[in-house]
Design a binder for these strands. Sequence first.
DNA 1: GTTGCCCTAGACAGACCTGTCTGATAGCTT
DNA 2: AAGCTATCAGACAGGTCTGTCTAGGGCAAC
Lengths: 203, 203
Amino acid sequence: MTPPAAAAPQAARTPPGQARDKILATAFRLFYAQGLRAAGIDTIIAESGVAKATFYKYFPAKDDLILAYLEEVDGVWTGQLHAAAEAAGPDPAAQLVGLFDALASACRRDGYRGCAFINAAAESASGTRIHARTVAHKEHIRAWIRNLAVQAGAPDPDQLARSLTLVLDGGLASGVLDADPAAATAARHTAAQLVSANLGRNP
Amino acid sequence: MTPPAAAAPQAARTPPGQARDKILATAFRLFYAQGLRAAGIDTIIAESGVAKATFYKYFPAKDDLILAYLEEVDGVWTGQLHAAAEAAGPDPAAQLVGLFDALASACRRDGYRGCAFINAAAESASGTRIHARTVAHKEHIRAWIRNLAVQAGAPDPDQLARSLTLVLDGGLASGVLDADPAAATAARHTAAQLVSANLGRNP
DNA sequence: GTTGCCCTAGACAGACCTGTCTGATAGCTT
DNA sequence: AAGCTATCAGACAGGTCTGTCTAGGGCAAC
């Protein structure tokens, strides 16, 4: 029985097919900056400039959005690590040290708040999809580093990969406390010492 | 106009002065196991077996309880680190490695979920009291390790302390993913390598 | 006995959060 | 022009959260 209401003018309609990307970009920003729980669906919707129904069409539940976010972060961070390693040249031993430049770059970025995966794991119960996704990410990284260690001729690539991922995770974890570039520098230095000690030569 | 209601029998009254401890013990358990946001005040009150008014008398806001919790964790964890270091004997160099036994012990404990401080920082915005308390904790730990490094005669105690805290934090951070004892073992091994490399002798 | 303190029980307010639903609009295709 | 699909706007339901408030019960000291 409500009168048809004179049709509110709509502001800047999102072109078809771009809604999902806009949502994901906003979620990336808010989830990383505030944390998974602190960032509410309503806020993400409002800042995306998208209608609620559109949001729930693409992400039926908040967890689905979180998983998509983690997927995105995985791609970005893995890409940065690979790029930093390759920038160190063709020598695998040098790459094992050079990948730590990605940590230094991350530290310098505005709004840096450590590792999105560690932060996500801290907020999710073990056994959830979110937690499992985080574990999978860390395993991929370690497998990649282990592979580099093999190529570098490390006598115990598992051990070297463990050591280096510990230092990398330590650098990332301390990033949530303060974005101190000294931590990243120290991590690279530490990595160089470990690579040197475990290869028995100076890379 | 409600009738005086025949006075419900009260279950097990908390002795005066013990209410705060009961609340803090419950909060310790729930905050660590579930995270700061996931653990609700109502649940903590219910599991403490304490009345709501009593709770708010001791902790006017949730943040006050969280800070008390972090204070508690600081005492416990610092104590464990010191104990592990002292158990390694009087040699400071050996203590720098031995403190990592506290990490291995922590890993083996049921319900281990990494570092309470890193987890807390992941859930709190920078600038909050909670975040600041976390940063202070990490600085205390590093200052203590640096002191050991000085006693051990390290040529660059700052650098060695940095390296070792990176490895320690890495071990703790990976603990929120899975409580793999191998990570703790690897951390100790890595620490031994770093101490050896930075002291120029075999501890 | 009376006073004072600490405790219990639980209703309540107000905010916020996730997810559902209705109905209308824009723009492309046919 | 008609139809189709993706989008918009926002009300609404049901739950949870923090924090306040009222009313009363047990116990010890005075």
